[in-house]
Simulated assay, not measured.
Amino acid sequence: MRVHGLPSCAMEITVCRAADVEMLDRCIGSPGATSFHARRFERQEQGLSTYLVAWYGRRPVGHTEVRWGGCDDATVRAAWPGCPEINALSVWPESLRSRGIGSALVRAAEERARARGRTAVGLGVADDNPRAAALYARLGYQALAPYLGRWSYEDHDGVTREWVEKLTFLVKELP
């Protein structure tokens, strides 16, 4: 796939390998002392998810994790049981956004869900991120339920930071 507005170079989406984690940390860092990329890769190794990485040339420019057990929020899981979640979609640096990388990552995640026999896939979008919400609507996702997303990380000083964010869970039925 070609990235809009950039010199000719193929973009490729691959399943994360152990050797990719260090490069992801260098190019798309984590806010804390513990690598988000290493945690996602570990979940993949446990069979809980598939961690996809978008590469432009030899550089990672985006990623997302397909969590096969669904959204962490119990209310969302109860409303749509068996629905895997596309989680932590990101394109970096910001100057590469709106060039088709995020759409390609979502499509790759959908293909993997279809290959596993799943009939729908979902994702959470922050209420304060209308740009992402517009992308997901263009890709056919529809609002299912509001919920609070919660996660934590250990910062560089060893302090555990807790995040709570207002989200809406969106679902797309897969043909």
Rank of each mutant, 00 (worst) to 15 (best):
A78T: 01
A79D: 04
A79N: 02
W80L: 13
W80Y: 12
P81N: 01
P81K: 01
P81M: 02
G82H: 04
G82F: 00
G82I: 03
C83R: 02
C83E: 01
P84W: 00
E85G: 03
E85Q: 03
E85Y: 00
E85M: 03
I86G: 08
I86S: 07
I86P: 06
I86E: 08
I86N: 04
N87P: 00
N87G: 07
N87L: 08
A88M: 06
A88N: 07
A88P: 00
A88S: 11
L89T: 03
L89C: 05
L89H: 06
L89D: 00
L89M: 06
S90K: 11
S90T: 10
V91P: 02
V91L: 05
V91N: 03
W92Y: 13
W92S: 13
P93E: 05
P93R: 05
P93C: 02
P93K: 03
E94R: 11
E94G: 04
E94I: 01
S95T: 09
S95N: 04
S95V: 07
L96T: 00
R97S: 03
R99K: 10
R99G: 06
G100I: 11
G100H: 11
G100L: 10
G100W: 10
G100K: 12
G100N: 12
I101S: 06
G102L: 00
S103T: 15
S103F: 09
A104H: 11
L105F: 08
V106L: 09
V106S: 07
V106K: 06
V106G: 06
R107T: 15
R107L: 14
R107V: 15
A108R: 13
A108L: 13
A108M: 13
A108G: 15
A109F: 12
A109C: 11
A109Q: 09
E110M: 14
R112A: 13
R112E: 14
R112F: 13
A113C: 15
A113Y: 14
R114V: 14
R114L: 15
R114P: 13
A115K: 14
A115Q: 15
R116A: 14
R116F: 11
G117Q: 07
R118H: 15
T119H: 15
T119F: 15
T119Y: 15
A120L: 12
V121G: 12
V121T: 12
V121L: 10
V121R: 11
G122F: 06
G122Q: 02
L123Y: 03
L123D: 07
L123S: 07
L123C: 10
G124D: 00
G124P: 07
V125K: 00
V125M: 06
A126Q: 10
D127H: 14
D128K: 05
D128F: 09
D128N: 10
N129D: 09
N129H: 06
N129E: 03
P130D: 01
P130L: 00
P130W: 01
R131D: 11
R131F: 08
A133D: 07
A133H: 08
A134F: 10
A134V: 10
